[in-house]
Computed example of a mutant assay.
Amino acid sequence: MTAALPRADVAPVAPAKRRRHALGWLAVVPLLVFTAIAFGLPALAVLDGAFTAKDPATGATSYTTGNLTTSLQGPYLTALLGSVKLSAVSAALGALLGLPLAQAVVGSRSRALREAVLTASGVLANFGGVPLAFAFVATLGNAGVLTVRLGLKDSGWDLYSFWGLVLVYLYFLIPLMVLTITPALEGLRSQWREAALNNGATGAQYWRHVALHVLAPSLLGGLVLLFGSAFAAYATAAAMVGSAVPLVTLQIADALSGNVLVGQENVALALSLDMVLVAGLVMAVYLPLQRRSARWLDA
Rank of each mutant, 00 (worst) to 15 (best):
P30T: 09
A36K: 03
L31Y: 09
V46W: 00
L31G: 12
V33K: 08
K17L: 15
K17T: 11
A38H: 04
K54Y: 06
A57G: 05
V13L: 15
L44T: 08
A60E: 15
V46S: 00
A14Y: 06
D55W: 03
V33L: 14
V13K: 12
P42D: 05
L44W: 08
G49W: 00
A45K: 10
R19M: 11
A50R: 00
V33P: 01
R18A: 13
P15Y: 07
L23H: 11
A14P: 01
A36C: 06
P30V: 09
P56H: 05
G24P: 00
A22M: 13
G49F: 00
K17D: 09
K54C: 04
A50M: 04
T58N: 07
A60W: 06
A43L: 09
V13E: 12
A38K: 08
A14V: 14
P42F: 02
A50C: 02
A43C: 07
A16S: 15
L44P: 01
T52R: 05
G59A: 04
R19E: 12
L47V: 03
P56N: 07
H21A: 15
A57N: 07
R20L: 14
D48H: 10
F39A: 10
A53P: 00
D48G: 03
L26T: 06
P42Q: 04
R18M: 07
L23N: 12
T58L: 10
L44Q: 12
A16C: 12
R19V: 13
L31D: 05
V46Q: 00
V13C: 06
A22S: 14
R18D: 09
G24I: 02
T58K: 12
W25F: 10
G24S: 04
P56A: 07
I37Q: 02
A53H: 00
V29I: 15
A16H: 14
L32F: 06
P56I: 03
T58W: 08
A36S: 08
A53N: 04
G40M: 03
A36M: 05
P56Q: 06
F39H: 08
G24N: 03
A27E: 06
A38W: 08
L31N: 06
D48I: 05
F39L: 15
L26V: 06
K17G: 14
F39D: 02
L41T: 01
A43I: 03
